[in-house]
Structure formats: structure tokens, C-alpha cells
């Protein structure tokens, strides 16, 4: 039986592809972020500080894509490793609370750099009470 909330590793020859399943849009976005950071920093993550980000977009897929793309940017420029995210939707946008810690080479190295989040095949599906989406991360 498939776990209602899950991150599944799908095959992709060149890049990293994940299927995210969740029971709500908030969980779907949080899990997508978790999947991305598991590729970047596979080791331990401890919550030491918090940041907030705000995103607006034209449709749900764009919102997810912009959310993940901006997370990548924040993580790289502010050397911030995100352990967890809490999402609140606001009309066409969202406010995300990012909890994590500063990047430390000894603790966090060894992951794979993500160059970008692809729009290829990115669509959010709703089936009954479940939501899912497939995401390709270019590494």
C-alpha cells in the first residue's frame, strides 16, 4: 500500500525525478521542498533559525515551481539549509516559513547540487483526497 504522504524516487536517466503524494496542497509543497533538500543536503539537519518567503504566481504549478526555485536561490545565496517548511496559501500566492540552519561544510557536504527545477511534466494531479505531482530536478 502506498503511503498517503510520500516522496517516491522515479527513474530518470540524466537528472533526479520525484513523485510527491500528499493529502493537502500545503503538505504537497512542504514535501516537494523536503525532497529537494534531501538531494542537496542528505545528512542531518537541525532547526536553529527561521526565515519567511512570499511568492505569487498565475497558477498552482507555477506557484510550486517558483516556490522551489526561490528556495534554491535562498539556500545558495544565504547558505541556509532548510529542514522543514510550513506553508500558508494566500489567494494566488503563499507565505512559507523556512526552518533550518546555516550551511556547514563538514556537516552538510556530500549532496548533489541542483541546477534548476524543470517545468517539464510538472503538473499537480488531484485524485479523490490525494494530490500528487512529478518533479524533475536538473543536477
Amino acid at each position: 500500500m502506498v503511503n498517503p504522504m510520500s516522496i517516491e524516487e522515479l527513474p530518470h536517466t540524466a537528472d533526479v525525478r520525484r513523485r510527491i503524494r500528499a493529502e493537502s496542497r500545503e503538505e504537497l509543497f512542504s514535501l516537494a521542498a523536503k525532497a529537494m533538500f534531501a538531494v542537496l543536503y542528505p545528512g542531518k539537519c537541525d532547526v536553529w533559525s527561521e526565515k519567511t518567503m512570499t511568492i505569487d504566481a498565475d497558477d498552482p504549478e507555477d506557484l510550486l515551481w517558483e516556490f522551489l526555485s526561490d528556495l534554491l536561490y535562498i539556500s545558495e545565496v544565504e547558505s541556509f539549509v532548510v529542514c522543514e517548511t510550513v506553508i500558508r496559501f494566500t489567494g494566488s500566492g503563499l507565505i512559507a516559513t523556512l526552518r533550518g540552519e546555516p550551511f556547514q561544510r563538514e556537516k552538510h557536504e556530500g549532496g548533489r547540487e541542483i541546477k534548476g527545477v524543470s517545468l517539464s511534466g510538472l503538473s499537480i494531479q488531484t485524485t479523490g483526497d490525494m494530490m500528487s505531482c512529478d518533479i524533475i530536478f536538473d543536477i
Binding site: 517558483e66 534554491l72 536561490y73 541546477k115 534548476g116 524543470s118 517545468l119 517539464s120
Partner: peptide
């Protein structure tokens, strides 16, 4: 370079619609 691609994907998605181009893949 990664950010240049991300930034311009956003504007080019809108341009695709503006110029009436139909695509089989959003990327």
C-alpha cells in the same frame, strides 16, 4: 547561469502564450 535560465523561463512562458505558440512541453 542556472538563475538566468530560471528567470527567463518565467518571461518566456508568458511570451509563448503572447505569440500564440503551442508547445508539447512547458520546458
Amino acid at each position: 547561469g542556472h538563475q538566468v535560465c530560471t528567470d527567463h523561463l518565467k518571461t518566456l512562458e508568458k511570451a509563448t502564450k503572447k505569440y500564440g505558440i503551442t508547445l508539447p512541453d512547458r520546458q
